[in-house]
């Protein structure tokens, strides 16, 4: 196989793996378009929050802050705090990518690195290719469709803002949680450490959410990962993922 066709097949595999993410993002981004409009932001402001920030829940917070006319330095500081989790996610991720890849490809991969992309790529790695680095071609294939549908669905939401009954949307948004659960549950089988991580992260997130709001994930993911490190390091072999 030539280098080109090898990369194309990796790219296609990435796109295939991205299907569940895409299904989660479509309703979420339509909702974002609707919510943005209901906060009476301009069409382009709503769209650019998706296109440039591209950070899930923190977009909603950003939209609310913008609509409330919060001062720019405060908005930027809050953006930094809320999205600090990406720093940790990316640090963890950086050990799995090809370090020799160029600046430009690292920039593209970095831009598209959402929680869901991170989870899917880390888990697909566990399926028999533990040693292998994730190739740039695969990652771009995995990241491109979710970003493309984010743009399309946000715009769709902006346009639909006049027609859609808003009360039906939360039900559609559960698709993102179904994706999360489908990623979590298979990891819990036969691994005491995974169960400890899951329960401590979920419990701390639940308890802290009323106080920390959007920054909760940052704190509770540290608690979960730390608690997992405290449990016996005896390797369990049941950590296969779907």
């Amino acid at each position: 196989m030539t280098d080109y066709s090898r990369r194309m097949s990796l790219f296609r595999r990435g796109m295939l793996d991205s299907v569940p993410i895409v299904m989660g993002y479509v309703p979420a981004c339509i909702t974002f378009g609707l919510v943005g409009k209901s906060l009476s932001l301009g069409n382009w402001e709503v769209f650019l929050l998706s296109a440039l920030v591209y950070a899930g829940a923190s977009q909603f917070i950003g939209a609310k802050l913008l609509a409330a006319g919060t001062l720019a330095p405060i908005i930027l500081l809050l953006t930094l705090i809320i999205n600090l989790r990406y720093g940790f996610i990316s640090t963890s991720f950086s050990q799995r990518i090809n370090r020799q890849s160029g600046l430009w490809s690292k920039a593209m991969v970095g831009f598209g690195l959402t929680e869901e992309v991170y989870a899917i790529s880390m888990i697909s790695r566990r399926n028999g290719e533990r040693k292998e680095k994730l190739s740039t071609a695969y990652l771009l294939g995995l990241e491109l469709p979710p970003y493309a549908v984010t743009l399309l669905s946000t715009w769709t939401g902006i346009i639909l803002a006049q027609y859609i009954p808003e009360h039906i949307l939360p039900a559609l948004n559960t698709s993102l949680y179904a994706l999360l659960i489908a990623l979590i549950v298979p990891q819990l089988r036969g691994s005491k450490r995974s169960i400890v991580i899951c329960i401590s992260a979920a419990a701390s997130s639940w308890l802290l959410e009323p106080y920390l709001g959007a920054s909760t994930v940052l704190v509770s993911m540290m608690i979960g990962a730390w608690a997992g490190g405290r449990t016996s390091l005896k390797k369990t072999n049941g950590r296969e993922a779907a």
Binding site: I181, S194, S205
Partner: peptide, 20 residues
């Protein structure tokens, strides 16, 4: 490295609860 290995699951869990 162990800490970072634990992160994916920890992130997913805290995103799911209480959000769901």
């Amino acid at each position: 490295s162990g800490f970072l290995d634990n992160l994916p699951l920890a992130v997913l869990s805290s995103l799911t609860i209480p959000g769901i």
